[in-house]
Amino acid sequence: MKRSRWLAVTSAVQLTSDVAGFVIADRRRLPADPVGVHLHVPRTHLVRSSALLGTGQSAPIVMVAAQVWATWRLLRGPDETARKTLRALGVAMVGGYLIERGSPLWPGHRERWATTAFAVGLAGSAAMAALARR
């Protein structure tokens, strides 16, 4: 399988974990809460704030939309712009996963489904960044 196809499949798996993370965050009312930044996002505004900030378990909707676009383009064939987009998103998402205060990496936040979605999302993001290298 071509490298661009592997990148598209990896991105699709990562997208699936991101959707699962959004569902988990929505059910638990977990807004984005990065370490070192106190956003004070009201739990009642979770869906609205997730457009640009993401949630405690998922990327911002604008990033997800860009990832869907780039993945679609790569599934159609090699595409330099899509590759660069997925590389940038992968790098940014790895950082986002690592700085989230309520992530399963922190003691007291581990839970079966959330930890699984988080681990797949983090690994998928890192794999996207690596596969999208030139």
Rank of each mutant, 00 (worst) to 15 (best):
A129C: 05
H38A: 11
G108C: 01
R5M: 10
W113E: 15
V37H: 14
G124V: 04
A92C: 06
V41P: 07
V94G: 09
R76M: 05
G77W: 03
A127N: 05
V64C: 10
T16I: 04
Q14I: 00
L75P: 04
G96F: 09
A92L: 12
A88K: 14
G124T: 11
R110Q: 03
F22H: 14
A129L: 13
L98K: 06
W113Y: 11
T85L: 03
V9C: 01
R87I: 05
V62W: 02
P104V: 01
W69T: 12
S4N: 09
L105Q: 11
A127S: 10
S17A: 13
V64F: 02
H38I: 10
V9D: 15
G54T: 01
P34Y: 07
A132S: 15
P42C: 09
Q57K: 09
V37Q: 07
H38Y: 03
T16F: 05
A129N: 14
I24T: 06
M93G: 02
R43G: 07
L105S: 09
E111W: 01
A32E: 08
D18L: 12
I61Q: 06
S58W: 00
V13Y: 08
T16E: 10
T116L: 15
A51Q: 04
L105A: 05
T85E: 03
P60Q: 04
R43T: 09
R83F: 00
S50L: 09
G102W: 06
A32M: 08
R27D: 15
A119M: 00
V120K: 08
G90N: 13
W72H: 04
D79L: 04
G36C: 13
G90Y: 04
L75V: 13
L131V: 02
S49I: 07
P34D: 14
R27F: 12
Q57R: 04
L53Y: 03
L46P: 10
W69C: 08
D26R: 15
R3T: 12
R87F: 10
V68F: 00
P31C: 15
E80F: 00
V19D: 07
I24D: 12
D26G: 09
A70P: 02
A32I: 12
A66I: 11
L30G: 07
S103H: 01
G36M: 08
L131D: 11
Q67G: 06
L39P: 13
R3P: 10
V9Q: 12
E80I: 10
T10H: 02
G102T: 14
W72A: 05
Q67T: 02
P60C: 05
L15W: 01
P78K: 12
G54H: 00
D33C: 05
P104A: 03
I61W: 00
A123N: 03
